[in-house]
């Protein structure tokens, strides 16, 4: 049970980072930490004690395999995570060019 709780703790670490950091890039990194914790959770979920990677080998009929579905989900989620992270970084670079700072306290045009 402990690994699952560690995943959740990592998720909370990332959430803490998003809330408290003031640097745009550090916020992006914290989001990535949250993402990775979720992926770890998925990967742990599908693990079966003594299982092999899930590509069926006809030579060994009795072989135990790990659950392939969470792995497929994690792969899809990683691709999505790549897209979101790179878009976030592109926006951060653009923001840096406009404001000349990464500090979130100085980027406050929109209020109310």
């Amino acid at each position: 049970m402990i690994p699952y709780w560690m995943c959740f703790a990592l998720f909370l670490v990332g959430l803490y980072g998003v809330i408290t950091r003031r640097n745009l890039v550090k916020i992006a990194i914290s989001l990535s930490i949250m993402e990775v914790s979720t992926f770890l959770f998925f990967a742990l979920m599908g693990y079966i004690e003594g299982g092999k990677f899930p590509i069926v080998d006809p030579a060994e009929p009795g072989q135990l395999y790990v659950d392939p579905l969470p792995q497929a989900l994690v792969l899809t989620a990683i691709v999505i995570g790549l897209a979101t992270t790179s878009l976030l970084m592109a926006v951060i670079i653009r923001i840096y060019r406009k404001y000349k700072t990464f500090d979130i306290r100085e980027i406050r045009n929109l209020r109310g």
Partner: peptide, 17 residues
């Protein structure tokens, strides 16, 4: 697409500004 991402984020950042 990953090569484009890399170029967009790294190389062209230095050209303008």
């Amino acid at each position: 697409s990953i090569f484009i991402l890399f170029l967009a984020l790294v190389i062209f950042k230095e050209e303008d500004t």
